[in-house]
């Protein structure tokens, strides 16, 4: 590209806009649906129940250890579909570019989106770009919408959760939150923490079976907030064992130093599954077979004690409330 940075004319709809679309977006995402270049992508009929989701990404910084805003924008939406039991198929992406953004950075991010979409097996079928004046956005915001299809027979619903069910988490918690905070604040730890940002759909397909009742990806608000949401919806209690919650030592260390609680930090490549007790061992074994689930752990049980109340049994054997995230002062992380 001639100009190195995004200027207002890139959003004018004129020649510069066209070039940006052709050289950055079409080049990375080329596929028959996008190449139709119509006002809307026309998709083939599909089997299964459609599942639709949308999410906006405003993370700062744009690049961090283990990922970037583009990878996050694909993973976030793919994972939201995957945890409903859907097979993600199509994505759309809307970009809000701040005047002055380096085109090189945009290119890297778009390439990263394309690579992540390919890993996840989803196709980007529609997109939009807007440019706003310097100061009206923070470099780059991305919205993605995802469409997937739930195969017949798959039914995930928190209302199926009942006392005695087991709560499984697919790996270490808080990695993404700490990776972003360290990057933002220029903190360096002896063992740097990478974001866990990853598409979970293939991983989830590996253990999805009858008896898996409800799944969530614990993004903003972390494990604690997600468990509380499920407990409220399902009108059940939960008892979580602190001892069994997987944490990287570097994450516990950083949390101690910064005053964060890892159970409230965002994750971008983890799933919480609530399963019938009789399949707990099988689900765990299947998770651990996959690179994304090596550290999967059964962390607790659904109880009939006070609906909506999540309790944590601490490492010394006391019980306390594990409440929702409440007005914490945390940087934007997704």
């Amino acid at each position: 590209m001639q100009s190195e940075r995004i200027i207002m004319a890139h959003g004018s709809g004129g020649r510069l806009s066209q070039r940006l679309v052709a050289e950055v977006f079409q080049q990375a995402f080329a596929n028959p649906y996008l190449d139709q270049m119509n006002d809307a992508a026309v998709l083939p009929p599909a089997q299964g129940q459609p599942a639709l989701t949308t999410d906006s990404f405003v993370v700062s910084p744009l690049f961090f250890r283990g990922g970037d805003i583009g990878k996050l924008a694909v993973c976030g939406t793919v994972n939201d579909l995957a945890v409903t039991g859907a097979a993600p198929k199509y994505l759309t992406a809307g970009f809000v570019l701040e005047e002055g953004l380096l085109i090189n950075d945009l290119n890297r991010i778009v390439q990263s989106m394309a690579a992540t979409a390919e890993t996840a097996g989803v196709t980007l079928v529609a997109g939009d770009t807007k440019v706003v004046e310097r100061g009206s956005a923070d470099k780059l915001f991305i919205n993605t919408t995802g469409l997937g299809f739930i195969p017949e027979g798959t039914q995930l619903n928190p209302l199926q959760v009942k006392a005695g069910d087991k709560i499984i988490v697919s790996g270490t918690l808080g990695d993404h939150g700490i990776a972003i905070v360290s990057e933002r604040e220029g903190l360096s730890f002896s063992t740097p923490v990478s974001s866990d940002c990853a598409p979970l759909n293939h991983f989830i397909q590996g253990f999805l079976m009858p008896g898996v009742k409800c799944m969530r990806d614990p993004t903003r608000g972390g494990l604690a907030t997600t468990l509380n949401e499920i407990a409220l919806q399902a009108k059940v209690g939960m008892l979580i064992s602190e001892e069994h919650i997987p944490l990287l030592p570097a994450v516990s260390g950083a949390c101690g130093m910064l005053g964060f609680d890892p159970l409230y930090l965002a994750n971008e490549g983890k799933v919480i599954a609530i399963v019938a007790p009789e399949i707990e061992a099988r689900v765990l074994a299947l998770m651990r077979r996959h690179p994304l689930g090596r550290q999967a752990s059964a962390i607790g049980t659904v109880t009939s004690y006070e609906p909506g109340l999540v309790l944590l049994e601490t490492v010394i054997g006391a019980k306390r409330i594990l409440s929702m995230l409440e007005g914490e002062h945390l940087p934007r992380i997704c």
Partner: peptide, 28 residues
Amino acid sequence: PLQPVGPCMVSSEGSCAAYYRYSQRRGM
């Protein structure tokens, strides 16, 4: 913690914030 009146509710190290977060009710 979202709408603190007194300072003990503001800081995560404040007594009120700690009680609020970890034992909202009596009789836990």
